[in-house]
Amino acid sequence: MRQNAICEGNEMDSLLFAAKPAVTLASARGAFPVHRVFCVGRNYAAHAQEMGHEVDREAPFYFMKDASSVVASGQTLPFPPATQDFHHEMELVVALGAPAFQISAAEAQACVWGYACGLDMTRRDLQAQAKDKRRSWDLGKNFEHSAVIAPLTEASAFGPLGDQTISLSVNDSLRQTARLADMIWSVPDIIADLSRFYHLQAGDLIMTGTPAGVGRVQPGDRLEGRIDGLAPLSLRYARA
């Protein structure tokens, strides 16, 4: 009996499941298949401070979400289990369209396929418990529907990153607002740094961090996220 767990050739046609998630496109038919989801922590100084952390400008740090956590905006989502402190974190999402390994920041922009509005939804109480015990953040960060992604816009249609406003409202009340230029680590810097540790591939998404103003989401809340020049994000959480 063959022990090789990697399918080859036409064996792919006999896979029991075709589970790779995909993100819709803002201006064309088709979809962007998701390979991995990388997340940058504390990439806005004001957010680091509101969470009680010193601003670290030495190097970015990362955590990950499973690709299966990706869900499209525009839906009513179930409120997640096992949390009493569920938070929104509005972010710029970068979609890679080319491989990258050990590249420079100057080379990184050529690897970007496009951008989207995204939400890194967080079970803050579970994350805090993990921090207290010096454990991983998985239960707080990596769960079903925790990466909400709006339709992707191609990089060529968005223009250079800089002074665009990023914002999030809950029930029409503004919670988060900043400029993309406020990020501590730029998109090229992040891609170049990640490529030191991973063979980045087309299909990888990078959630680039959230501005200050994160806060609690309750069942029944309606969220609307915007970044100038990108398709907006919207969703509602079902009542318990």
Rank of each mutant, 00 (worst) to 15 (best):
G225T: 11
S234D: 09
R236G: 10
V214M: 14
Q49N: 03
R2W: 12
D193V: 06
Q201T: 01
L180S: 01
R236E: 15
F61R: 03
P33Y: 07
S195F: 08
T76W: 05
L92A: 00
I166P: 03
R196E: 06
V148A: 06
D125V: 06
G74L: 07
I191F: 13
G140N: 07
E54N: 10
S14W: 14
N10P: 01
D189P: 00
P78H: 08
L15G: 04
E144N: 08
G162K: 10
V37N: 01
R57H: 01
Q218K: 08
L126P: 00
N142E: 00
G162N: 06
Q49R: 15
D85K: 10
F32R: 03
D193A: 08
S156V: 04
L139A: 15
V71N: 01
V70E: 07
S156H: 09
D221V: 04
I149K: 05
W185R: 01
P188N: 07
A26F: 05
D66K: 13
H145R: 14
P21R: 14
I166S: 08
H53M: 11
A116K: 06
D182E: 14
G215M: 09
H88L: 03
G209L: 10
M12P: 00
F38T: 05
A19P: 00
M1V: 13
Y198R: 00
T208E: 03
L233R: 12
A212K: 09
C7Q: 11
C117N: 03
P188A: 09
L126G: 01
G41S: 12
A147G: 00
L152Q: 01
V148L: 14
T122K: 12
I191Q: 08
N10M: 13
L223A: 14
V148K: 07
A26G: 02
A98H: 08
S27F: 10
R124Y: 03
A67G: 05
G41Y: 10
D172Y: 00
F79N: 07
T24M: 09
E224R: 15
E154L: 10
